[in-house]
Design a protein around this nucleic acid. Structure first.
Lengths: 161, 161
DNA sequence: AGCCTATACTTGAGGTCACAAGCTTTTGCT
DNA sequence: AGCAAAAGCTTGTGACCTCAAGTATAGGCT
């Protein structure tokens, strides 16, 4: 009986939550170690370079980059500090609004991204793809996208009442 | 065209990986802030208390707790330092092997867990459950369980030779 | 114009984690 | 027994991130 009576049961929500966090920690740790060893980049540093590379003119406001990376403003300041220090990213002032500065991908940064991309994306594909059949990864991605904050909020589809 | 020619494409594996990490960051940040504000516990502190509560005699070797929580040995030392400091966990020496010490849940720790459990599990259910139909959470949990490191490796199914 | 709030960003302080190195004890090998 | 390797744990160091607070600029309102 009831020695375990006070221990919370594991509902589907909690099961999913626990596995989500564990999966992220496990996968991130592995890929982060490889990326760091191979190229000296953190995952967020890589994602930052990638995000910039995809942006128009390879430039973004720091705030928008923070949103993209799910970082706080101060987090992005420090991340860019180190990327600027390595010469991967430059800084430019905005003409019309002197509060904002842009983060701009440099040529060096683009080269670094291209260099890191080859091994990193292969490692991701190996780690993620290994245990899934076709379609299951898409299914997983679709389910994850429903969680709040994962995909940028879609304002356009609010017909409200 | 092809301004974007050097930018990595997004395969299903990478899409799933990116969303996995984003989901974890978003969900963890929210729940961690609530848990910390309401009860002064980090998520790992809560999980540690919970894991201990479920263990036989509410006690575990520190190494095994580290494995359960996906932490390194040093990570668990520091986590337990603070839990011991708060009186939630005690320490006991192993008789037969003097290298190992056990982490033991105290009465105070059990009370704390019970106190935190009510709000925390409700918040998890709200956050996770909100955007899914029946069965989808189980589906998500099942998919996540396939990733390496998420569920403890099952040694028992090695027929070896 | 003056003021008030919001926005963009930076900085200081603190928390959490990993890695590397070190200590002690145990185990396996000869 | 003796020695080497492994296991369990702790500590120093540094990376990364957040929160709170501060600065500076922009925009709206009276």
């Amino acid at each position: 009986m009831a020695r375990a009576a006070t221990i919370p049961k594991t509902s589907p929500e909690i099961q999913a939550f626990v596995r989500l966090v564990r999966a992220s920690v496990a996968v991130t740790r592995e890929l982060s170690a490889q990326l760091s060893a191979d190229h000296g980049l953190s995952i967020n540093a890589y994602e930052a370079l990638l995000t910039l590379a995809r942006a128009p003119d390879s430039r973004m406001r720091r705030v928008d980059l923070a949103d993209s990376l799910l970082l706080t403003a101060s987090g992005v300041t420090r991340l860019l500090d180190s990327l600027e220090c390595d010469g991967y990213v430059g800084r430019e002032q905005c003409e019309s609004d002197r509060r904002v500065s842009y983060a701009v991908l440099t040529k060096t940064g683009r080269d670094k991204l291209r260099e890191a991309d080859t091994t990193h994306t292969r490692q991701i594909r190996e780690l993620m793809g290994e245990h899934f059949e076709d379609g299951e990864l898409t299914q997983l991605a679709d389910l994850l996208a429903r969680l709040p904050g994962v995909e940028p909020a879609d304002e356009s589809c609010a017909p409200d009442s």
